[in-house]
Design a protein around this nucleic acid. Structure first.
Lengths: 193, 193
DNA sequence: TGAAAATCGTGACTTAGGTCACATTCATTT
DNA sequence: AAATGAATGTGACCTAAGTCACGATTTTCA
């Protein structure tokens, strides 16, 4: 149940066996079946989630009922609404399983305890958040400087297998266009090659 | 020269006098005059910068020569191209002073030293980056869910004084529209009230 | 102070992507 | 196996924002 978490931690930091055993006591294993929700908007995001296996997405729903995907959470990734997790305020995001998933949940108080008692975790999360910030800044600038087609191509470049695992309308809502636009774009790409 | 840095640190973490004195030795004070550059794209971003006084902006220039602003750096903020700073790769960003500014620069190796020798700084930067990530995620979702007008209103809501200090075409390139679009938008807002 | 450079406004036209509507295929459940 | 719902494709039309062009005003700095 903790294989992938252990692997990911050891890629980034050095922790002792005792520290890892302690960490394991703070996580809550959970299986989440496809199409089930881990978080619904309006509720506070009380867990940060590590994906041991499967695939999640976090997304908002706007006034017109359109979904906008903030993040796909693949194996080895962390998923949460950070703001709600840190403040306890109601979340504006939903988190849903795209595939049957094995998750490791940790509450805010356990997380605080982990950071306080195992300084290596403080560093681990700093690096994690840092990389996430870099990626999010890239994506933000991408929406300002590139076309929908370029963003689609970047996505399949960066995450080739996501196309196989995720329905197209979710890809569309991740790159920031409607499903119709992505559909047309793909048929143009297919014709042009 | 270190007044504002000290203030900002003490808002977030507890550090001893000795630790702060040590930290001070790692920073390089620099005055940067209006319109001068701290970083030009193509060069590696060798410093992370704390703004003691003044105003910076970081921005990219796309193929057509249009500028896109990632960040304004006001008093008490940190500015860098994180990716380039961490990896040493050439930066795709420029950092320029919008006003005459007093800066505190720190190199990667000094920064590493600071994080290793004063654990409170590890936490300080984790929290800083965390808040930046939350804000950047908000801005990203904003570009997908809101109109240019709403983004403009949010900006003047969040940073009322920025309108006075920054030329309009930079505001436009921050919210992700052309200067013409922002100009028209403003005259509509003025007419409608 | 006087010339050069920035900045801003605005009109005419173009365009990428959105909206709405309907049809088809594919998957899921009972 | 039938049926319901999810996912995709595609045509016709619309709209927010971009592009290009020109003038006017304001700053900057030599």
């Amino acid at each position: 149940m903790f294989e992938f978490l252990e692997k990911k931690l050891k890629e980034n930091i050095h922790i002792s066996r005792d520290e890892f055993e302690f960490a394991k006591t703070l996580f809550i294993p959970k299986k989440l079946r496809k199409k089930r929700f881990l978080l619904q908007d309006g509720d506070p995001c009380i867990y940060t989630t590590f994906v041991e296996k499967g695939l999640l997405r976090s997304f908002t729903v706007d006034d017109k009922g359109n979904e906008h995907i903030l993040q796909f959470g693949m194996q080895g990734w962390w998923v949460a609404d950070l703001y709600s997790f840190l403040t306890g305020e109601p979340s504006e995001y939903n988190i849903e399983a795209i595939e049957d998933s094995d998750l490791l949940l940790i509450t805010k108080s356990s997380w605080d305890q982990l950071l306080n008692e195992v300084p290596a975790f403080e560093r681990y999360f700093r690096v994690l958040i840092q990389n996430n910030l870099i990626a999010t800044q890239r994506r933000l600038m991408g929406t300002m400087t590139t076309t929908a087609e370029e963003r689609y191509n970047s996505l399949i470049q960066d995450f080739p297998d996501i196309i196989q695992r995720v329905p197209q309308h979710m890809i569309a809502s991740y790159i920031g266009v409607t499903r119709e636009t992505l559909s047309r774009l793909r048929s143009q790409l297919a014709a042009g090659s």
